[in-house]
Design a protein around this nucleic acid. Structure first.
Length: 260
DNA sequence: ATGGTTGTTGGACAA
């Protein structure tokens, strides 16, 4: 019954004590980090190794950066999203762990809309859809997890009007999100908690968003059909968001039945 | 409230 978790840590070095405490206590089998904000050479490998984790890091100085940690052997597959050789941003990691193709991603924010950052976001989503199509055609059981920077519906944001001109709510963004799911992927949290409300995964640092519980649901586990059959539970752990020096995101976890 | 906060970095820029 492997447990996987995803967490946008907003700098692994600034967050290290908090993240190590959580990891050592929860002990997920696989852990996906986003926004580690460091090159691989600056990633605290040893601290996680002492907790029993191997690591695979796709780093970048100052911005972005993703990592995959695991207590089981990691078999790397890709360290960038196919479809644009010129894209140097560290936002994608793909590896086989325990017979599952595990993909960790930090989808571009895309603000402000109508400029090149938004075009990059939409193109990145097209590339992600293409990757999912390939994996489905190959019949590989896989999951995509991370910070998707998409607010799929107005129920996934505390105030839709306040985000009407935000890249995360644009109809083009939502259409591509639906196109991805309509390939046959499933949002594990929604399956496990169909009646959940205000199940935020992110609260801005500003304007008392956390104490007022004004958040967004933008971190997800998407499962391929063969993994949906193994889904036991999926949850959002709000506790780390309440701590001093918290990330603005909180971990999302997913428990699967053992495979054959 | 065209503000507010945090992180990287040592001035903007990203979120």
């Amino acid at each position: 019954m492997p447990v996987l978790a995803t967490w946008n840590v907003n700098s692994i070095r600034a967050r290290l004590p908090l993240v190590l405490e959580w990891t050592g206590r929860v002990r997920p089998d696989v852990l996906l980090f986003q926004e580690i904000k460091t090159e691989a050479s600056g990633f605290p490998d040893m601290e996680f190794r002492s907790l029993g984790y191997q690591s695979l890091v796709v780093g970048q100085k100052s911005y972005n950066g993703v990592a995959l940690l695991s207590r089981l052997p990691i078999h790397p597959v890709m360290t960038s999203l196919p479809g644009d050789e010129a894209d140097a941003q560290a936002r994608y990691i793909e590896a086989d762990v325990a017979g599952i193709r595990v993909i960790g991603l930090y989808l571009p924010n895309g603000n402000p809309i109508g400029a090149e950052k938004f075009a990059y976001k939409l193109a990145w989503m097209d590339r992600l859809i293409a990757r999912a199509k390939t994996l489905l055609a190959e019949g590989v059981p896989f999951l995509m997890a991370g910070d998707f920077n998409v607010i799929p519906t107005d129920d996934d944001v505390y105030d839709p009007k306040a985000f009407a001109s935000d890249a995360l709510t644009q109809e083009e963004t939502r259409r591509k999100w639906r196109a991805l799911l309509n390939l046959g992927l499933y949002d594990a949290f929604s399956l496990s908690h169909p009646d959940a409300r205000r199940a935020w995964t992110f609260w801005d640092y500003q304007a008392g968003a956390w104490p007022r519980d004004l958040g967004l649901r933008i971190d997800f586990f998407l499962l391929s059909p063969r993994l949906v059959d193994r889904l036991q539970d999926c949850g959002i752990d709000r506790e780390p968001r309440a701590l001093e020096k918290a990330s603005d995101h909180t971990p999302v976890w997913c428990r699967l039945e053992d495979g054959q």
